[in-house]
């Protein structure tokens, strides 16, 4: 067993009875439950499984290299998107963002991708499908999308901050184009020592960003007025004017 893996395995034992006041208004409290190797097509990771003591939700961190007690650790937050991540949906850029996050961490030689699962009792997939259906019917409006609004960013940051604390990370460089993400993490007590731009290489599916000069933040490929932000990260494609 390598030292890096040892350090992660030790967290499982350490966290067996972990219970704290929690992070954020929902008092999110997670603990490390299981660690295993995860070879991927993007490189080798270790998969660290977390359990949220408050609502029984599972989250995972994909860890590469030595991060426990680490400084300036590259960290990417990714919010689960079943349609994008798994199904390769072109309604969003989640898959491009996920794979580029993993590649960045490999390039940096170490880092963590926090894969944040849907929170909030049932809100998620069904309402996303409803939102898409409204879009197709031409009836999507800001109000309806807000009512469907399927992510609680605030809670995501609380989960992320606790996961980083659990992993013993001392300071992070956040892989993001969204300065608000950094502020939010800092508000939850994460020491942010820098930012790594999150730039996606061009491909046949995102080339239109280069053509439309990415007029908006948000990430839906459908260029309607209302967006359903999922990664709360502005899409930047290599070669795109700022």
């Amino acid at each position: 067993m390598t030292a890096a893996k040892d350090a992660l395995q030790a967290l499982v034992v350490r966290d067996r009875d972990h219970e704290c006041d929690g992070f954020g208004p929902a008092r999110v409290c997670v603990r490390v439950v299981a660690v295993a190797e995860l070879p991927t097509r993007f490189g080798h990771f270790r998969l660290v499984g977390f359990w949220n003591n408050r609502d029984g939700k599972e989250h995972v961190a994909l860890v590469h290299g030595d991060v426990v007690e680490g400084d300036d650790v590259p960290v990417r937050l990714h919010s689960e998107c079943l349609t994008g991540d798994v199904m390769g949906s072109l309604r969003c850029d989640c898959r491009d963002q996920l794979t580029e996050g993993l590649r960045t961490i490999q390039r940096e030689g170490r880092g963590i991708l926090l894969y944040l699962r849907q929170e909030g009792r049932g809100i998620g997939l069904l309402n996303k499908i409803r939102a898409y259906a409204l879009q197709e019917s031409g009836l999507d409006t800001v109000e309806a999308n807000q009512a469907l609004g399927f992510r609680d960013d605030e809670r995501d940051y609380a989960v992320a901050a606790h996961m980083l604390r659990s992993l013993g990370v001392k300071s992070v460089r956040v892989v993001t184009n969204n300065p608000d993400k950094i502020r939010q993490l800092e508000q939850h007590g994460v020491t942010v020592s820098g930012r790594i731009p999150h730039v996606i290489p061009p491909n046949e599916f995102n080339r239109f960003y280069l053509e439309t000069k990415a007029r908006r933040s948000g990430h839906l490929i459908d260029l309607t007025e209302e967006r359903l932000p999922e990664q709360s990260d502005r899409v930047l494609v290599e070669g795109m004017p700022p």
């Binding site: 409803r130 409204l134 019917s137 009836l139 999507d140 409006t141 800001v142 109000e143 009512a147 469907l148």
Partner: peptide
């Protein structure tokens, strides 16, 4: 108005 029509569509599901 359209925003209310979209809420109607939502509630109908």
């Amino acid at each position: 108005p359209r925003p209310l029509a979209s809420v109607v569509a939502l509630l109908e599901t």
